[in-house]
């Protein structure tokens, strides 16, 4: 009930964004899955609406998107399914919406995870960014509300940031559609394997923690040699995450493999 197909495309400014075709709730035969993650109240739903042409409610208030919303768009002839994850501050807690977001990024293995950050509060948003980069290698950071940040005297050097994080960084103002085209382009490039990310991995100064993680990573490598995010899994084990324990027991974890950096395999299936 929350969404409605927009029949009035021609009026909105993104209509002219090159090669974007909004598919609304039509997600048949998609080639790639794109996940939208981010802190609450960063304009995630606005980006979602631009991609899909749907009208999710957006509000200047945390906690609007409670359930996962899905939609679709077509770009350069490829069909993308977009999953708008609940806005969370972190992926480490035990709350239900964090579990949804965490499990989707890990087990759902989206082809691209778009992390929407509020440029005016980037430092705090990086908390979530770094956590996501522990889970997935294929992510792009969208610096939303960049106009507001600039107005407040905050300037962000995206090139340095991109280099530090090892993923593309796109400044956008989703409300007016600025930067969305670049974002789409980079999503396309990552999904099709033309852009390969080398994401930043957290460095901990605690040698005890490092030792424990390494011990578990070694064990995990024996059992699941193809697992791409062993450090994250090790961390979750140390946190006692039930869904990870279950997936180890059931062997599901073994199915998570580093996807070959080419969308072609995906298309064939």
């Amino acid at each position: 009930m929350k969404t409605k197909e927009n029949t009035n495309c021609a009026n909105c400014p993104v209509h002219n964004v090159g090669h974007l075709k909004k598919l609304g709730i039509n997600m048949d035969n998609f080639d790639f899955v794109v996940a939208l993650a981010g802190n609450p109240n960063t304009g995630k739903s606005t980006v979602f609406n631009y991609f899909t042409g749907l009208r999710q409610h957006t509000g200047n208030w945390p906690g609007k998107t409670v359930t996962r919303a899905e939609g679709g768009f077509e770009y350069e002839g490829k069909k993308f399914k977009v999953v708008d994850l609940p806005g969370t501050y972190s992926l480490l807690s035990t709350s239900a919406d964090e579990e949804v977001a965490r499990d989707f990024i890990l087990f759902g293995q989206p082809d691209v995870t778009v992390i929407i950050a509020d440029s005016t509060r980037l430092e705090r948003n990086l908390n979530l960014v770094l956590q996501i980069l522990e889970i997935t290698d294929r992510a792009v950071l969208c610096l939303n509300l960049i106009d507001e940040a600039n107005r407040n005297g905050i300037s962000i050097n995206e090139r340095i940031l991109s280099k530090q994080l090892g993923i593309p960084v796109i400044p956008t103002t989703a409300r007016s559609g600025q930067g969305i085209n670049e974002l789409l382009k980079i999503i396309y490039e990552i999904a099709t394997g033309r852009y390969v990310c080398k994401p930043f991995k957290m460095k901990t100064h605690s040698s005890d923690l490092n030792k424990s993680i390494n011990e578990l990573v070694a064990l995990l490598s024996e059992q699941f040699p193809d697992l791409p995010n062993k450090r994250w899994v090790a961390l979750r084990l140390l946190e006692g995450d039930q869904s990870i324990i279950n997936s180890i027991r059931s062997g599901e974890l073994g199915n998570l493999k580093t996807a070959p950096s080419s969308g072609l395999v995906e298309i064939e299936k």
């Binding site: 430092e123 705090r124 770094l130 050097n157 995206e158 940031l161 957290m202 100064h205 605690s206």
Partner: peptide, 22 residues
């Protein structure tokens, strides 16, 4: 606690390189 501290430390380091406040 340690984990969150680590993450925020990393975040702070990255932020200090990329963000300038007027």
């Amino acid at each position: 606690d340690t984990l969150m501290e680590t993450i925020y430390q990393n975040a702070q380091e990255i932020a200090s390189k990329a963000i300038t406040y007027s």
